[in-house]
């Protein structure tokens, strides 16, 4: 547990360079600019580091010679700064790649099995990202949670999407309460019949079931992370968690 908390500005209150880490052909950097003055007694993280370095003195202070974070950004971004201030985004003219061949050792590795026995857990539970639900640590702001459909959260209840055919086999109708069990845990959910989902598969939105923050977000829906466990990708060692076997029963 931390002994010291250093509250930072939020993104609307600060300068910040935002490099695009993947997905684009050329190197791209965005710049966020403050649009409101800080609402609380907070300080830019960069500013905090500069102050700390200055206070510690010596070579550390020498490594952080800027008066403030904005100066630091301007100097380090150099010629990109003007473009960023004008257009908000900077894109590299040309980009050389390291090579022209593509190797993926994972393709030769064995298929990763999903956790759970098919006999005990006949369904496959898949978490999905919804454009209207922030699955990061901050969670949805009130306006965003307001856009979430009543087939995803209704009151405090979260939903799983299920094919009508699969639902009929279990005896569930639109909006029925059901008990969802996986090898990792169980939760009470409602079901939403969705023609578009594959029979035998059920899906649940990521980013719900928060315990933190206020009444606009907390306790709405189910945190799917409590129902799925980590599965190791043997080639990379990374977590390949993407689903788990599950069982639905009428509540």
């Amino acid at each position: 547990m931390a002994d010291l908390l250093l509250p930072d500005h939020v993104y609307l209150e600060r300068f910040e360079d935002v490099p695009v880490t993947a997905g684009l052909a050329s190197q791209t950097i965005g710049l966020s600019k403050p649009v409101v003055s800080p609402q609380f007694n907070t300080r830019h993280l960069g500013e905090t580091l500069i102050c700390l370095a200055r206070a510690m003195g010596g070579s550390l202070a020498a490594s952080f010679p800027w008066a403030d974070y904005e100066t630091c950004l301007r100097e380090t971004l150099a010629e990109k700064w003007d473009v960023l201030m004008k257009d908000g985004v900077w894109t590299a003219e040309q980009m050389t790649t390291a090579g022209s061949s593509f190797r993926a050792p994972a393709l030769e590795a064995a298929t990763i099995g999903v956790e759970g026995e098919a006999s005990a857990f006949p369904l496959l539970l898949i978490p999905y990202d919804s454009l209207r639900i922030s699955s990061g640590y901050i969670g949805d702001a009130p306006f965003m949670i307001k856009t979430v459909a009543d087939t995803v959260i209704k009151g405090k209840d979260g939903f799983v999407d299920i094919n009508p055919q699969t639902a009929a086999e279990i005896g569930l109708g639109e909006g029925s309460l059901a008990l969802l069990t996986t090898p990792c845990g169980e939760a009470s959910v409602r079901v939403h019949l969705d023609e578009g989902i594959m029979p035998g598969v059920i899906a649940m939105a990521k980013g719900l079931g928060h315990t933190a923050y206020d009444g606009y977000l907390a306790d709405k829906g189910v945190n799917i992370n409590e129902l799925i466990g980590p599965v190791e990708d043997p080639s990379s060692g990374h977590d390949a968690a993407w689903g788990i076997r599950a069982k639905l029963a009428k509540a």
């Binding site: 009543d150 209704k154 009508p164 594959m198 029979p199 709405k220």
Partner: peptide
């Protein structure tokens, strides 16, 4: 906005995005 906006029959959204399907199965 209210703490619970999941009752869409009393939730004010001047522009509302409906989800339509073609009614065909997977």
């Amino acid at each position: 906005f209210k703490t619970d906006e999941s009752n869409k029959l009393d939730s004010i959204t001047w522009i509302r995005v409906y989800k339509l399907t073609n009614g065909k199965s997977f």
